[in-house]
Amino acid sequence: MSSSVEAITVLSSDGDEFKITVSAAKLSKPLNWMLEDVCFSDDCDEVPTIEVNSKTLVKVIEYCEKHAPRANSGASDSDAEELKKWDIEFMKMDVKDILFHILMAANYLHMEGLYDLACQTAADLMKGMTVSQIRKIFHIKNDFSSEEQEQLRRQHPGCSFD
């Protein structure tokens, strides 16, 4: 029962309006379900709200629009290569705090590709780092007592701290 519209309008949690094409919205399961229902038919003028802030939603929509053509038609290997490069660039632009909003949004919107990409990016930031480096990157507070800390150090002799 999806209507013939080509783009839909959604609200961010900050109340801003965003346009997203139907083919791009299909990358998200909940949005796809909304499309199949009556949410976007002509006689319904209520704009659905997505619980994602505007700054994050811009990025999520950018990702969807880029990936939609391939997801809907299936593309050649060269396209896939190009898309991979684009993904890396896409994640590079992010400061850490928006990465976590994207993680939450991709999880909330059931977007597997973006979720994996964001998790991978977060994991890459931890890889090969020492404990204190990771704490610094992610602002993680060390809340162990010195005895606990010492015990954990002894249990994990292979881990580098500084």
Binding site: V131, D143, L152, G158, C159
Partner: peptide, 11 residues
């Protein structure tokens, strides 16, 4: 090996 080290980050 990276996962195991994460245990020492915080509680």
């Amino acid at each position: 090996k990276d996962i195991l080290c994460l245990r020492i980050l915080s509680t």
